[in-house]
Amino acid sequence: MLLREGLIGVLGRFGHETVAAVGDADALRDAVSAYEPDIVVTDVRMPPGFQDEGLRAAVALRAERPRLPVLVLSQYVQRSYAAELLDTGDGTGVGYLLKDRVGQVEQFVEGLVSVAEGGTVVDPEVVRQLLRRRRDPLEKLTPREREVLALVAEGKSNAAVAGELVVSEAAVGKHIGNILGKLDLPPADGTHRRVLAVLAYLRG
């Protein structure tokens, strides 16, 4: 409730309009039919059961409308939730973020816009967990390449990665080429395709 009010405030501050704010999964479904929004933002937990109704609703919505961008906020990072979301549609126009991230209002709205435009945004925490898991093949990568990989998996563009690591965009491109080669991933164009390839690799 409190969170919803806050979110509407944040979105309004950045010039986005909230067409409907609802309290449970059924109301969410009705609101989507009524307003055809550009993006749906939902919490994993929702009334009445406070289990994972929000996630279930998001997955159901994506099954009906694979093109509908959905951003799911979670109390804490859970790979299973992220995996289930990324498996909806073709994995584009999906976001899975830790609820804490909404406090970083600018980055949060950036991510939200990216999802609305068909991007894939996964919380850095998920990426960190995935990286920790797939230790063996990742040992082939240099530390720098691993850093690049983490940022790519978060959905950052080459330019953004370059900015973060303070290197040239060309250097980033070269790192990415090396990474994809070492991990036997097909070279992909478009940021979110690449993100998906990397995430698929990390999950598999």
């Binding site: 409190l2 109390q75 804490d100 406090g103 600018e106």
Partner: peptide
Amino acid sequence: AQQRLVALTMSLGL
């Protein structure tokens, strides 16, 4: 507590 804290960080962010 958690919801309130998230709301607080949002207010502080704004």
